[in-house]
Design a protein around this nucleic acid. Structure first.
Length: 263
DNA sequence: ATGGTTGTACAACAA
């Protein structure tokens, strides 16, 4: 079963690319981030025409996440618990039936956190704490769980072409990296790193300053697996070619093959 | 070091 994550940076600007990618890559479950759309205006019809069920958690203008699935949703939960005042749409969980029982998949868009001297950085760290608490609870279920999305965290210097340029940035601050590592300490596996330790694997290239042409990228889109999901880990692929398409997103899809089958 | 780009119910802001 293929589970993919992709920050599409605006679903309206990216709908042609998205449909082409769905046909080409054909993930069973796709986790999208930065749809930048309210639920009512999400272009669900052409996606449903390709055989996908669509669930969104959107807001006007910014943020917004979605789950597209060839499997029927048994359950959908929107929003990361732990802060009643948080209005930002950054989290959606779907539950599916497989040959090994329930599979939980989360599409998450972790806050960027810049500038670090603003309220945005503590919001990011608070969000990561809430994610940690929520994840620790979910781990008790001992089920396959995939936390997929744009984490806005560069885990290690090897995950950036020019790590020096990111020192002090919210994506590379020690506090952000520590919070990411705490997910590992809880028992989650970074799927890409479990299958490939090479340097120079990136998932994001800025639109500015010729970053793509210089391969000045960073790896910030991650699939974190519970032990029961990691037990079924197959291949992990970064679909870098999509960054060279017309009107590309600044992120590319990361696709995980889990050795599970739909029920 | 600076400036560079793209998206969003179109206007500043986010990244």
């Amino acid at each position: 079963m293929k589970i993919a994550t992709w920050n599409i940076n605006g679903v309206k600007a990216r709908i042609d690319n998205l449909l082409h990618w769905l046909e080409e890559s054909s993930p069973d479950i796709a986790c999208l981030q930065e749809i930048k759309s309210v639920d009512e205006l999400f272009p669900r019809e052409p996606i449903e025409a390709l055989g996908y069920h669509v669930e969104t958690h959107g807001q006007k203008g910014f943020n917004g996440v979605a789950l597209l699935s060839k499997l029927r949703f048994d359950e959908v939960n929107r929003g990361l618990p732990g802060d009643e005042g948080d209005e930002q749409a950054r989290f959606i969980e779907g539950v599916f039936s497989t040959d090994r029982g329930a599979l939980r998949v989360v599409s998450l868009y972790l806050p960027n956190g810049n500038p670090v001297d603003s309220e945005k950085f503590p919001y990011k760290l608070g969000w990561m704490e809430r994610l940690e608490k929520w994840s620790a609870e979910r781990l008790k279920l001992e089920e396959p769980l995939v936390l997929a999305g744009d984490y806005n965290v560069i885990p290690e210097p090897e995950d950036a072409k020019n790590p020096d340029a990111w020192v002090g940035d919210a994506l590379f601050r020690p506090e952000s990296r520590q919070a990411f590592r705490r997910l590992g300490a809880l028992g989650f596996t970074d799927a890409l790193r479990a299958v490939n330790q090479d340097d120079g694997i990136y998932t994001f290239w800025d639109y500015q300053a010729g970053a793509w042409q210089k391969n000045n990228g960073i790896r910030i889109d991650h699939l974190m697996l519970s032990p029961e999901a990691a037990d079924h880990l197959g291949s992990v692929t970064v679909e870098k070619h999509t960054r060279g398409w017309e009107k590309p997103s600044d992120h590319v899809p990361v696709v995980l093959d889990l050795k599970l089958r739909p029920a």
